[in-house]
Write a protein that binds this DNA or RNA. Structure first.
Length: 903
RNA sequence: GCGAGGGUAGCCAAGCGGCCAACGGCGACGGACUCAAGAUCCGUUCGUGUAGACGUUCGUGGGUUCAAUUCCCUCCCCUCGCACCA
C-alpha cells in the first residue's frame, strides 16, 4: 500500500501543458466532415462528480480513438449554465447567479483539464451569456413566425409564500409542500408560453423507427411519451331526465334540461352497444355546472374525488346520455377516474370490455353487457359466436361483435371502421399523450422571453434587431426578481410605441439545450445561431453520450428543434444524434452515489492520489459503458499498479534496449501483438472499452513474461510496447504520451497512427485457441495419467491428407462423404486410417470449421514451445507428420495435434 | 396492468445456433519468487476418470433443429420506464 507508484502528478501536468501549448485538440473550421463526438454538457454545479467523469471519459476515449484513426474530430464542451440552483445559491451566499455560475464554470473547467479531457476550448459555450441566449430569443421569434408558439392558461404549482411557480419535483410529499418554505402548494391558472411540439408528434414518433443507433429503451420511452392512439370521437346527447326531477321532488312539470352534445373519445367504438353508462371528469364543464346546483355533486367534485386513489369513485348525476347507435338512454356519472386532460374528459363506459369500467359498474350496480366475443379458433367469418361471460371480468381484447344488432358478426377492427362511418357525429381521431411544451418559468436565471406586453396590442415580439433582451441586475427578493426589476420592465411597445412592460417569464432551460450542439459548429457567429453550411456538413452528432435521465425530455426537445430548423431554416438534417449511448451509473456498494447518503467518492481526491489516467482506465475497464458498476478502491489501486508496471517496462527498455534473437518466442510475441491490436480495435469501434483495456493488459503481461524468459528481440519488443502504449492512449492519455515519448517518438501520441495488425481477429483467435487447447490437453494428460516426472513432450501436427479431407468435407454436400473422400488418391492410399477419419468427419459434418493451414498450425505450436517448456520443465518438440509414427498420428487432427509424453 | 431490458458456475460478468463445461475479473486453493509479507508470475476451482474422455449444467416447463446457453412458446422472478390514458 505504501508502494510508490509512478509520478502521475508530474506526468499529467507536463502533458496537459504540452497539449495546451500545441493546441492539440483544436478543430479547424475548415475540416470537411469531422466525427462529432459529444457528451451532454453539464450543469455547472461547482464540481465534477464521478458520473461526469465517466460520461466524459467515454466521449474523450472515443474521440481520441477516432483521431488516431485519422479522422478529424469535433469534441467540444460547454455549460448548461442557467437554472434555479444558481439562484438559490446566490441568495444563500448573498451574491448573484451570474458570478456564482461563472465561478463554478471556472472550477469545473479546471477539473476537466486536470482529467485530461481533450476539448476544443475555443468552442466553449455557456448558455447564460447573452451571446448564446440571444439565439434562444431569436429562435423563439422564428417559432412564433411559424405558428409554433402559443400563449394560454395552464395549471401550475404555485407557492403563495415564495410567489413563484414550482416544478413538480419541487413539491414535496403527500401534503404537497413547497420544498423551500414548507408552505402548502396550490394550483393556479397562469398564462404560459408554449411551444407546439404536438405539431410534430407524428414525425417525432415515426422517425424513432429509424434511430437505429439509439438504445431500444430510449426509443421505447419516447414512443410511450408521445403516446399516439387512434380512435373515434363521437357525441352523446345529454339531458336531465324525468327520474331526477321526480326524485328531487321538483314537480312533474319540469322540462328536461338540455346539455346538448358532449364529445367522447374512444379507441373501442366497436363496443358501443355495450356502453351502459357515461362518465364525466370532475372538472368537466358540465360537472362544474352541476356542482353549483347539486350539493351531492359539489361534495364529490370538491372533496371525495380522488384521481390518485386506486378505487374508482363517482356520483350519479341523474342525467342521461343517448347512445347514438342504440338510442338507449344511459345514466351519466361524474367519476374521478375520468381525467380531463385525457381524450375529451368524457367517456362512454363499457363495463363488459374495460376493466376499470367493469369495476365501477360493479360498485354502482350498473349493467354489464358482453358485446364482443373472442374469435373462435375455427371461425367461418360470419357466424355470430356465443357471448362471453363478463360478469366477473371484462374481456378486453378485440374479437367478434355480438349483441350488436346489424354489426354482430363483424370483427372489431372492421366494426370500428363501419361504426365510425355510420354514426353521424363520429370522426376518426388521434389522441396523443404528448402535451405542448410549457416553457414559461417565473424565475430570474434563464433566457428572458422576448415579448413586450402592451395594453393595446397585447403581447408583441421584440424585434430581432433589439435582441438580446438582456437580464437586468439580480435583485434578491422572494418572488420573481424580474418582476421586481421595475426599470427593466418598463419599456415601449415595438408596435405602437406606447408604454408597455416586458414579459417577466424566462425560458425553461431545456430550450437552451435543444440546439446547443449546433452552436459548437460556429460558437462565435454573430449574425445567426449557427453557420448553416457548416452545420449541414458537420451534423449530425456521430456519437452522443449522456445519462438515461434525459431519455425523454432533452432528447425529444432536441429532435423537435432539429426538425423545426430543418423545415424553416434550411438545416439538412432532421435528427440531431446519430448514435446515442446512455451510460450507466457509478455506484458504491450497489448504491447510487449521493450526497444525502454520504457515499460520494470525489474525483478530485482520486486524481490527486492516483492520477487522472488511473481513474479513467479503472472506470473504462470496470464495465461496459452502459452498465452500472461499483466503484472499488482496490480496483483503482490495481489499475494504478498496472500503469506503474507498464511505465517501468518502457523505461527499462528505453534505458537499455535488449539484443535477443528473432526466434520462435519472438514470433509468439508478434502474434500476440497482432491479436491485441486486432481485438482492441474492434472493441473501441463498439465502445466496449473494457474489452479493449483487457487486451492491453494482457499484452503487457505477455511482454513482461517475454522479457523475464529471455533476452527479447528488440524490434519485436519495441513493436509490442509501442502498440500497447497506443492502445491505451485513448483511455490513459498522459502516461501514454510520456511512454510514447520515452520510446523515442517526437509527435504526440494523440496524433499518432493507430497501430495496425497484419492479421484479422478470426485468424488470431484460432491461433490462440490452438495454443491454449494444446496446453490444456497436456496438463490434463499429465494429471489424469498420473505422470509424475515427464521426460519429453512431442506435439505432432496432423498429416496433410487430413487437412485435405477436412477441406473436402466442409465443401462437400454429397450424401456419401466417405465415397467422395475416396475419390482423392492421396486420401484413398491411407486405407483404414482414411476410412476411420472419414467416419469422424461424417459424424461431425455439420459442425466442421476451417482450421489454420498446416504450416500456420506448425508455426503457432512451435512459437508456443517455450510456454510449455517453462511450465513443465521438459524439452518439447513440435513434430511434422512425416517424422512421426503411424500409431501416434491416429490422434492428430487438424487443429488438434497428437501429444506424446514420455515418462 | 402495459412496454423495455434481464435471470449464466461461490460472487460479478461475457457469450446469444455447432470451436461452450462456457471469455474475463473477484474470492478460494496449490505452486514459483521472497528471510517473510506485499506485489508479480504459473496453475486449479460442477462430478467422475491411471493419455487429451465421459456425465450433469446456463430461472421453469415445453417446442423447433442433425445440433440450443444461444431460436420459438408457457410460467416464475428481478430492474427500469409509463400508467384509473377512455
Amino acid at each position: 500500500m505504501t508502494e510508490e507508484g509512478y509520478d502521475h502528478v508530474a506526468v499529467e501536468r507536463r502533458w496537459q501543458d504540452a497539449w495546451d501549448e500545441g493546441d492539440a485538440y483544436r478543430t479547424s473550421d475548415d475540416v470537411e466532415d469531422p466525427t462529432y463526438v459529444l457528451g451532454m454538457y453539464p450543469y455547472p454545479s461547482g464540481k465534477l462528480h464521478m458520473g461526469h467523469v465517466r460520461n466524459y471519459t467515454i466521449t474523450d476515449a472515443y474521440a481520441r480513438y477516432r483521431r488516431m484513426n485519422g479522422d478529424d474530430v469535433l469534441h467540444p464542451m460547454g455549460w448548461d449554465a442557467f437554472g434555479l440552483p444558481a439562484e438559490n445559491a446566490a441568495k444563500e451566499r448573498d451574491t448573484n447567479p451570474r458570478d456564482w455560475t461563472l465561478d463554478c464554470i471556472e472550477t469545473m473547467r479546471e477539473q476537466m483539464v486536470s482529467m485530461g479531457f481533450g476539448y476544443d476550448w475555443e468552442r466553449e459555450i455557456a448558455t447564460c451569456e447573452p451571446e448564446y441566449y440571444r439565439w434562444n430569443q431569436w429562435l423563439f421569434s422564428r417559432f412564433h413566425e411559424e405558428g409554433l408558439v402559443e400563449r394560454r392558461d395552464a395549471e401550475v404549482n404555485w407557492c403563495p409564500e415564495c410567489e413563484t411557480v414550482l416544478a413538480d419535483e419541487q413539491v414535496e410529499g403527500e401534503a404537497e409542500l413547497c420544498w423551500r418554505c414548507d408552505t402548502p402548494v396550490v394550483q393556479r391558472e397562469l398564462e404560459q408560453w408554449f411551444l407546439k411540439i404536438t405539431e410534430y408528434a407524428d414525425e417525432l414518433l415515426e422517425a424513432i423507427d429509424d434511430l437505429e443507433g439509439w438504445p431500444n429503451s430510449v426509443r421505447q420511452m419516447q414512443r410511450n411519451w408521445i403516446g399516439r392512439q387512434y380512435g373515434t370521437e363521437l357525441d352523446f346527447e345529454i339531458e336531465g331526465s324525468e327520474a331526477r326531477s321526480a326524485s328531487n321532488g321538483r314537480g312533474e312539470g319540469t322540462e328536461p334540461r338540455e346539455y346538448g352534445a358532449v364529445e367522447a373519445f374512444t379507441t373501442r367504438v366497436d363496443t358501443i352497444h355495450g356502453a351502459t353508462f357515461f362518465a364525466l371528469a370532475p372538472d368537466h364543464p358540465i360537472s362544474e355546472e352541476l356542482a353549483e346546483e347539486n350539493d351531492e355533486i359539489r361534495e364529490f367534485v370538491e372533496h371525495e374525488a380522488d384521481p390518485e386513489g386506486d378505487e374508482p369513485n363517482g356520483v350519479a348525476t341523474g342525467l342521461t346520455a343517448t347512445n347514438p347507435v342504440t338510442g338507449d338512454e344511459i345514466p351519466v356519472y361524474v367519476a374521478d377516474f375520468v381525467l380531463s386532460d385525457v381524450g375529451t374528459g368524457a367517456l362512454m363506459a363499457v363495463p363488459g370490455h374495460d376493466e376499470r369500467d367493469h369495476a365501477f359498474a360493479e360498485k354502482m350496480g350498473e349493467e354489464i353487457v358482453p358485446v364482443v366475443a373472442p374469435e373462435p379458433d375455427d371461425w367461418d367469418g360470419e357466424t355470430v359466436p356465443d357471448a362471453p361471460d363478463v360478469s366477473e371480468e371484462a374481456y378486453t381484447d378485440d374479437g367478434v361483435l355480438v349483441n350488436s344488432g346489424e354489426y354482430s358478426g363483424l370483427e372489431s377492427e372492421a366494426a370500428r371502421e363501419r361504426l365510425t362511418a355510420d354514426i353521424d357525429s363520429a370522426t376518426e381521431a388521434t389522441q396523443y399523450q404528448l402535451r405542448d411544451w410549457g416553457i414559461s418559468r417565473q424565475r430570474y436565471w434563464g433566457t428572458p422571453i422576448p415579448v413586450v406586453q402592451c395594453e393595446d396590442c397585447g403581447p408583441v415580439m421584440v424585434p430581432d434587431e433589439e435582441l438580446p433582451v438582456e437580464l437586468p441586475e439580480f435583485i434578491n427578493t422572494t418572488g420573481n426578481p424580474l418582476d421586481a426589476a421595475e426599470e427593466w420592465k418598463e419599456t415601449t411597445c415595438p408596435e405602437c410605441g406606447s408604454e408597455a412592460t416586458r414579459e417577466t417569464d424566462t425560458m425553461d432551460t431545456f430550450v437552451d439545450s435543444s440546439w446547443y450542439f449546433l452552436r459548437y459548429v460556429s460558437p462565435d457567429l454573430e449574425d445567426a445561431p449557427f453557420d448553416l453550411e457548416r452545420a449541414n456538413d458537420w451534423m449530425p452528432v456521430d456519437q452522443y453520450v449522456g445519462g438515461i435521465e434525459h431519455a425523454v425530455m432533452h432528447l425529444l426537445y432536441s429532435r423537435f428543434f432539429t426538425k423545426v430548423l430543418a423545415d424553416n431554416e434550411g438545416l439538412d438534417h432532421r435528427e440531431p444524434f446519430e448514435n446515442l449511448l446512455a451510460q450507466g451509473m457509478v455506484q458504491l456498494e450497489g448504491e447510487k452515489m449521493s450526497k444525502s447518503v454520504g457515499n460520494v467518492v470525489s474525483p478530485q481526491r482520486i486524481v490527486e492520489e492516483y492520477g487522472a489516467d488511473t481513474a479513467r482506465l479503472f472506470m473504462m475497464q470496470a464495465a461496459q459503458p452502459e452498465r452500472d458498476f461499483d466503484w472499488s478502491e482496490e480496483g483503482v489501486r490495481s489499475t494504478y499498479a498496472f500503469l506503474t508496471r507498464l511505465q517501468e517496462l518502457v523505461e527499462d527498455y528505453a534505458s537499455s534496449p535488449p539484443d535477443g534473437e528473432d526466434d520462435a518466442v519472438a514470433s509468439y510475441v508478434e502474434s500476440e501483438i497482432d491479436a491485441a491490436i486486432a481485438i482492441a480495435g474492434e472493441e473501441y469501434d463498439d465502445l466496449t472499452f473494457n474489452a479493449a483495456a483487457r487486451e492491453s493488459q494482457e499484452l503487457v503481461r505477455t511482454l513482461r513474461q517475454y522479457a523475464e524468459y529471455t533476452e527479447p528481440h528488440a524490434a519485436t519488443y519495441e513493436r509490442g510496447l509501442s502498440a500497447v502504449v497506443r492502445l491505451l492512449a485513448p483511455v490513459a492519455p498522459h502516461i501514454a504520451e510520456e511512454l510514447y515519448d520515452a520510446l523515442g517518438n517526437d509527435e504526440f501520441v494523440v496524433d499518432a497512427p493507430w497501430p495496425s495488425a497484419t492479421v484479422d481477429r478470426a485468424y488470431v483467435e484460432k491461433r490462440r485457441n490452438l495454443v491454449e487447447n494444446t496446453r490444456e490437453d497436456i496438463r490434463q494428460i499429465i494429471d489424469v495419467a498420473g505422470i509424475e516426472d515427464p521426460k519429453s513432450i512431442d506435439v505432432v501436427v496432423a498429416p496433410e491428407w487430413k487437412y485435405d479431407a477436412l477441406e473436402i468435407a466442409i465443401e462437400s454436400d454429397a450424401d456419401n462423404l466417405i465415397g467422395e473422400l475416396m475419390q482423392n488418391s492421396e486420401i484413398r492410399e491411407q486405407g483404414d486410417a482414411a476410412a476411420s477419419y472419414g467416419q469422424d468427419l461424417q459424424a461431425e459434418r455439420e459442425a466442421l470449421t476451417h482450421p489454420l493451414e498446416i504450416d500456420a498450425e506448425y508455426d503457432a505450436l512451435e512459437s508456443a514451445v517455450w510456454l510449455i517448456e517453462r511450465e513443465f520443465d521438459v524439452p518439447v518438440r513440435v513434430v511434422r507428420a512425416t517424422d512421426a509414427a503411424d500409431d501416434v498420428l491416429r490422434n492428430a487432427e487438424p487443429g488438434r495435434p497428437a501429444i506424446e509424453i514420455e515418462d
